[in-house]
Amino acid sequence: MIKNLTCIVCPIGCNLEVEVEGNKVKRVSGNECKRGELYARSETVQPVRTLTTTVLTDDGRLLPVRTDKPIPKNLIFECMKEINRKTVSLPIKIGDVIIENIAKTGANIIASKNMG
């Protein structure tokens, strides 16, 4: 089976043609670089995404945060629920871990900004 994907690894956004047999990727074309092929493989087996959002701080402002590595796409809303329950105490430094092992994905939620 031939699947068409848009590579989301960089802003070029190559159109990928992926030949899939069952759960296996036989051939990838259309990618302008190697990362496109890796993306096609992971997208076929299990799509992952970096999640970015905000967390409420104890002074009422919002701290921008992100996952420190991509998480399975189907767990995005579960992660959002957990993040939206959280309030962090300031000060916070960029890169600080805000939630460890979010939704058992193995990824941490980290701060994208210094806030004090």
């Binding site: 960089c10 970096t50 970015t52 905000t54 992100r66 960029i94 994208s112 900004k113």
Partner: peptide, 19 residues
Amino acid sequence: CIHNGFGLHKFNEELTGPE
């Protein structure tokens, strides 16, 4: 712009806006 996608050319990394 709290989403990621910034800095691939300059830093070879995908950063959020604040980063």
